[in-house]
Design a protein around this nucleic acid. Sequence first.
DNA 1: CGCCAGGGACGAA
DNA 2: TTCGTCCATGGC
Length: 282
Amino acid sequence: MKISKKDINLYDTLFSGQCFRMTMEEDDSFTVILSDRVVNIKEEKEYLEVDSNKLEDLDLVVNSYLDLERDYDKINKELVSNCDIFKSNINLCEGYKILKQDKFEMFITYIISQNNRVSKIINSVDKLCKAYGEKVVFREKEYYLFPKFENIQDISLEELRCFGVGFRDKYIKNALDFLKKRKTFLDEIDFMNTKDAIKELTSIKGIGIKVASCILLFGYSRFDTFPIDTWVKKFVSNNFNVKDNINEISRYMEKTFGENSGIAIQYFYHIERNKKEIKVYS
DNA sequence: CGCCAGGGACGAA
DNA sequence: TTCGTCCATGGC
């Protein structure tokens, strides 16, 4: 199936620490595991060639996942006019999109993500999926979808520990217990403003401001949330006259970028990380 | 306030 | 090869 391309950089987008279920294939295409299917995306000159084990609504699913409908040109122009740093760096960020991923998957995955770096997060998530996710065969290879809530709601601490999540095992357990009591919570967030959503999420033990922001940015496309991690801190303290402190950075982001704070901070992250050689995890 | 609590990848030595 | 560092959160 062909999808019109709209200026996306698949590598930058998929290997930027937003998602953890992607592989780069030998033909330079990318295979990603979404909530209900496995999708292969190959960048051709004029379009994206997409294929999946499940073809139903595939164009809609990929369009939503890759955030292809949004006008990133307009956003980028605003960012350049808001902040000098982008005048010389925005070209590095062209084609970078904020993925729209599954809410429940983000909820659990970003609790795990506290653990360590991307490669380790991938390992833990993979183990969880292999143990509890639905098996899917695509192009003669086996994949495992992210588990449904029903299938992991009673998972034990010991088993979580086996997945290499360290002492976050109890945070995950606690988050699952929270959902047991409020089954519609993740859908309720859709109707909350961002401030309230952060307040609710961070009231759950094991979810702090960073993880809450990631869940909202990558699971709900809330561009007015901005995960501040060590890369971002480094970038901000190197480039702006802002104290190396979460509150100071938050104030600066809101003041400077407003509704675009989330994407601005992802661009910071992207620029800072790309100073080093990029690694491919597969 | 500052430290500690898995643990496995990873960079430096 | 070995060894120190990291990662975000909550508890003390």
